[in-house]
Amino acid sequence: MTQYDIKARSGLPNEMQALLRTLPRDGWKDHPNFARSIQNWMGAHQMFRDLATLVREDTESFLGQSLEDTAYAARLARFGNLLVGNLHGHHGWEDRAFFPELEAADPRFARGLEMLETDHQELDVLLDRLTIKGNRVVQLAALEPAQMATEAGDLHGIITQVGGFLHRHLTDEEDLAVPILLHHALRG
């Protein structure tokens, strides 16, 4: 089995783009098999990208002293929790139900789906780091606000990493899954 370096990978490996070449991204929405379920799944992906950006931008605003500490802590608790909780649920569903469905429809892409599941494991590690650091920042808002900036600086590095990872992973996931869905008329 080919191993793919998650951190070095900049896109879907070439051998996993067979259907993407015949069903390119710019034609998906006009394809007769592009179902509402596909649109909703991709909408969830966009929500994850947006939440990661929001947490990063809020952290930058706090560090730049344009967002007050209690407001930042409240937003971080709310939007950080939404990001982490929904990502865990979404990826758990993909690993248990969605990817097996795709693999059964087109076994040629089993290795690509395994690669995406490995991404999920790596993302879980990042999300755990984000949760621990985010919880620390939120706690400091009540316990020791003067220490928040140091911890928020560390959090900024983590959420930037999460955002970059998500952008690459979600794009890879869509580039592999949507052509399979369209080609095999799944989820319609």
Rank of each mutant, 00 (worst) to 15 (best):
G89P: 05
A52W: 00
E117K: 13
G157S: 11
H183V: 08
A74G: 06
H120R: 03
L102H: 01
V137A: 03
A177P: 03
P24M: 08
L166A: 01
L123P: 05
M1F: 10
S37P: 04
L76Q: 00
V138T: 06
I180H: 03
L54F: 12
V55A: 00
L140D: 05
S66W: 13
D26Q: 14
F62P: 00
T160M: 11
L186I: 07
F98R: 06
R108D: 12
A35V: 04
G85T: 14
L23H: 14
N81L: 09
A71Q: 11
N14H: 12
L54S: 07
L76I: 01
A71G: 05
G157A: 09
A185L: 06
G163C: 05
D124M: 11
I132R: 14
S66V: 15
G27L: 09
L102E: 02
G64K: 08
E114Y: 09
L12M: 13
G112W: 03
Q147V: 05
L182Y: 09
S61R: 12
R9Q: 11
A104E: 15
L182T: 11
S10V: 09
M16Q: 12
D172A: 03
M42C: 15
K133L: 09
A44H: 13
K29H: 15
L51H: 02
A71M: 10
N33Q: 10
E101I: 10
L54N: 04
P32F: 07
Q46D: 15
P100K: 09
V138I: 14
M47C: 09
H156Y: 12
F109R: 03
N33Y: 07
R96S: 12
H45P: 00
D124T: 13
R25L: 06
D26A: 13
D175V: 02
G27Q: 15
D30G: 13
T70W: 04
Q65R: 15
P32T: 08
G134C: 00
L186K: 05
E94R: 03
T53N: 11
T131F: 02
R25V: 09
H169T: 01
G164Y: 02
D124L: 11
I38S: 09
D154V: 10
A73C: 02
H31N: 07
A18F: 08
D30N: 14
E68I: 09
G163T: 04
E151H: 08
T131K: 05
T2R: 10
D30L: 11
L51T: 03
V138L: 01
L63G: 02
P179T: 13
A105N: 04
E174N: 11
H184N: 14
G85N: 15
W28S: 04
D5Q: 05
R168P: 02
E173K: 01
S37A: 14
V178S: 00
A71F: 03
Q3C: 06
N33D: 11
L126I: 04
G188M: 12
V138R: 00
D124S: 13
M47S: 11
D58M: 00
A18G: 09
A141G: 03
M42R: 15
T118H: 12
